[in-house]
Computed example of a mutant assay.
Amino acid sequence: MTSHQPSDGSLDSADLVVVGAGIVGLAHAVDAVRRGLSVAVVERDERAVGASVRNFGHGCFTAQDGDALRYATAARTAWLSLAREAGLWLNEGGTVVVARADDEYAVLAEFSAARDGQAVLLDARAVAERVPVGPGVVGGAWLPMDVRVDPRQAVHAIAGWLARRGVRFHWATSAHAVEPDAVVTSRGRVEAGRVVVAVGHHVHRHFPDLAERSGLRGCALHMLRVADPHGRRVDPAVLSGFSLLRYDGFTACPTGPALRARMESAHPGLVGIGLNLMFTQRPDGDLIIGDTHAYAGTFDPFQAEELDRQVLEQTARLLGAGPLTVRERWRGVYASAPAPFLVATPMPGVRVVSVTSGIGMTTALGLAPEVLDDLLA
C-alpha cells in the first residue's frame, strides 16, 4: 500500500478518495485495497444510514440481465469472500419465486429454460416445503445462486474490515467540492490521486448538470419489519408474481408482456404503487417485507399509511397468515434513472458512480473493479 502524507493544511492524502460510505463507495474501497492502493473515505454521516442499510439484504444475482448480470456474478464471489474475511452474516439459501397464477409459472418456466440450471422449477408442494405460503400457489422456482446478508450489519462489517486494512474513514465530514486531485471537505482538504463519488441519489449536490442530463431522481420505498407469524426458519429470499414485473431477467421472457398486461388489469392499484411483494428473514427471525416504489427529485416528509397497509395485507395473504405484528417501519430512497448504472467522468481523475436501478447490494462489488480498471488506466 502506498504511503501518502498530506501537505501542510490538508486533512489527508490517498491514492483513492471515495465520497460516500454506502455499499457502492465501500465496493470501490474494497477493490482498491485489494490492488494495494491507499484509500480514504469521506462520509457526511457518522455511519452509513441510507439505502445500503434500508433494504432486504438480498443478493438477487440470478434475476438480472445484461451488464447487471455480469456485475452480479462477480459480486457474488466478492460477497462470499467478504463474509469470510469481514465476519459478516451471509446465508446461501437462494431465492424462491412463488407463482400464484399460471402465467407467472409460465414466465418462470421460460426463465428456467434460458438459464441452464440457475433456476429450478418447483411444484406447489415443493414451494410449501421450502417457504411458508398461503393457499393458491401453483408452483414456483428456486434460484440457488442468490444469497442474503443482514443489511444492518453488512456495510458496517465491511467498513470495519477496511479500517483494519488501513483505510481511513472521515465520518461526519461533508464533501464541499470535488476537484481533479482533491476533495474539499468540512474538515479540510483531502488530496487524491483519483476520486470516486458514490453518493446515491444525491449526485445533484455535487454535479447538478450531470444529474439532470442523466435523468437521475430518487425512488422511495415503503418497507416494514414484522414478527414471523409462523415461527419458521426461512433460508431463501421469497419473491412473488409482482417481482416478475421488476427484474430484467424475468421481463425479458417472451411471456413477460402478457403477464404485465394481466397484472395491470387485475391489480391496477398494486401495480400503480410499484409493489414488489417479497420478504427476507433477518437472523433474529423477523421478516423484512415490502416494498412500494415512488419517484421524485424531492419527497414530501409525510409517509402514507395506505401504502404500508397494502404491503401488510398482501404479505399476510402471501404468507397465509392473519394480521402481522409490525416492529418497525421505514422509507428507503435509492437512485433511479433511465439507465441502470451511472458511471460518469465530470473531470479528469474523477468518476461519479451510482447504481440507478435499486440493485446496489447485488451489483456494486462487481461494478467497482471495472470502474477502477478504467479510472486507474
Rank of each mutant, 00 (worst) to 15 (best):
A106N: 00
S112P: 06
L221T: 05
F341V: 14
R317L: 10
V326Q: 02
S81W: 14
L88K: 02
F250K: 01
S186I: 08
L88S: 11
R84V: 08
A266D: 15
T95P: 09
L324I: 09
R100A: 13
V155M: 06
L80P: 09
D235K: 01
G50T: 04
E191I: 04
H201A: 12
L342Y: 02
V96E: 10
L221S: 11
W79M: 03
G366D: 04
G256K: 01
G249S: 06
M347T: 10
L324M: 10
G50L: 04
D15R: 01
I359A: 09
D228K: 03
S214D: 05
V311K: 00
L16R: 04
A172F: 07
G136C: 12
V197T: 01
W330M: 08
V107G: 04
V149D: 10
R47N: 11
D181P: 03
M1I: 10
G200R: 01
G320I: 01
H293E: 12
H156V: 12
E43T: 07
V33Y: 13
V190P: 03
Q314V: 05
R329S: 07
E92D: 15
L88Y: 13
E110C: 02
P135L: 02
V18I: 13
E85N: 11
H267A: 08
G269C: 04
R148M: 08
G25E: 04
V155F: 11
S3N: 13
S174L: 09
S243I: 03
R189N: 11
V49R: 11
D284S: 11
R331P: 06
V49K: 08
G360V: 05
I23P: 14
L90Q: 08
A296L: 03
R317A: 15
H28W: 10
V131P: 08
A119G: 07
P208M: 08
M361I: 13
A109K: 12
M223D: 02
Q5T: 15
R70S: 10
V137T: 07
A321L: 01
L121A: 08
M347D: 14
S7Q: 11
G297Y: 09
G140W: 12
L90E: 05
C60P: 00
V138H: 08
L342M: 05
A141C: 13
E110Q: 13
G9W: 09
L210W: 04
V149H: 07
R187T: 11
A99L: 03
P254M: 01
A72V: 03
D300N: 02
S38T: 15
V42M: 06
W79L: 07
G358L: 04
S112F: 12
R260C: 05
V199G: 05
V355S: 03
P257Q: 09
R70A: 15
E85V: 05
A344R: 02
R309S: 00
T95I: 08
L287Q: 02
E313P: 02
G231Q: 00
C219R: 04
G320Q: 00
R213Q: 15
R130E: 14
R187D: 14
A261T: 06
E179A: 14
V333T: 09
L307A: 02
E43N: 06
V42N: 02
C253R: 07
T280S: 06
D308K: 00
A29C: 11
P369Y: 11
A157Q: 10
